[in-house]
């Protein structure tokens, strides 16, 4: 009997490494990107007027490797615009959310490519490790590295800091804030955050209702609310007033309040987590973004 009890206890203790971290990355593998031909679930589908000419879409891959990795992973990237004009264009670097792959977010990227007029700004979007065709598995460190690799590529094409706008949606707000607060190869000029989470503690609290330490369920140290205090870039915050995933008051509002620089916000009545651009109205959304980017 004693042996059995010891065995069960040992088993439980040895198994006690279960965490929810990997579930943060809701990946889906792809063999090829479909972009406009993608027929899977999407948050919204734009009409023909937003279509991007094929010669303005460049799909390619980059190598990404964190300091403690032995081997680089290939990540896939799409650039919307004329790469030859990156030397002079302003570019929006879009860090997508935690779901699936770039096909799912293609409509959002296209919408950004219509801010200020068709292909007025360049847009760069990429899949984090494990998403779509990108290799490997995402971690907190790899998220930051993947974004930095994208910035390095933009810099190599001639982009300077003053023409880099970083846009983070949901999960994408974590690397966006990190690289604004602690710049690596480029220092973004402005940041746009759509439905940003405050930190793992607030996420845990929203889910459980109680003041549960985040360390009970995760090893992640993700913390937009703290890091944004060090970010001096102008901020535009977008959030759905009825966001059921990322509560406006306990998540986005905290991030916004902690930012001490120039900031503005757009709270969209009736919008949930996935439909801020849709309920904002595509024209109003693109106009607002354009005004924010152009604001001196």
């Amino acid at each position: 009997m004693k042996k059995h009890i010891l065995f069960i206890i040992s088993l439980l203790v040895l198994s006690s490494c279960l965490k929810l971290d990997n579930n943060l990355f809701n990946t889906q593998k792809l063999d090829a990107y479909q972009l406009d031909n993608y027929r899977g679930e999407q948050d919204f589908i734009l009409d023909e007027s937003y279509k991007i000419p094929e010669n303005k879409i460049m799909l390619f891959s980059l190598k990404s490797q964190t300091a403690d990795e032995n081997k680089a992973s290939t990540i896939y990237v799409v650039y919307i615009g004329d790469t030859a004009r990156i030397k002079t264009d302003t570019v929006i670097l879009y860090c997508h959310g935690n779901k699936w792959h770039m096909d799912f977010y293609w409509q959002r990227a296209k919408l950004l490519a219509n801010v200020g007029g068709k292909n007025h700004y360049g847009v760069l979007m990429f899949d984090y490790r494990g998403y779509g065709m990108s290799e490997g598995q995402s971690t907190e460190a790899s998220l930051y590295q993947d974004v930095d690799v994208a910035m390095q590529w933009l810099k190599a094409q001639g982009l300077d800091d003053k023409r880099l706008i970083v846009y983070g949606f949901s999960l994408g707000a974590f690397p966006s804030v990190e690289l604004c607060a602690k710049p690596r190869n480029m220092r973004p000029y402005k940041m746009i955050l759509e439905a940003p989470y405050a930190n793992s503690t607030a996420m845990t609290a929203d889910a459980s209702g109680i003041a549960l330490p985040a360390s009970y369920v995760t090893k992640l140290e993700i913390d937009n609310a703290a890091k944004i205090k060090s970010a001096t870039q102008d901020l535009l915050w977008l959030h759905g007033a009825d966001d059921h995933y990322c509560k406006l008051e306990t998540q986005g509002q905290v991030v916004y309040d902690n930012h001490s620089g120039n900031k503005e916000k757009a709270i969209i009545p009736g919008a949930d987590h996935e439909n801020v651009p849709l309920l904002f109205g595509f024209e109003a959304y693109t106009t607002r973004l354009d005004a924010f980017i152009k604001k001196p």
Binding site: L20, N98, S170, M203, A207, S208, G209, V217, Y245
Partner: peptide, 13 residues
């Protein structure tokens, strides 16, 4: 982010 919300209640007495 659904995972976070679904699985957390295991801690609640």
């Amino acid at each position: 982010m659904k995972w976070w919300h679904t699985l957390l209640t295991f801690l609640l007495c």
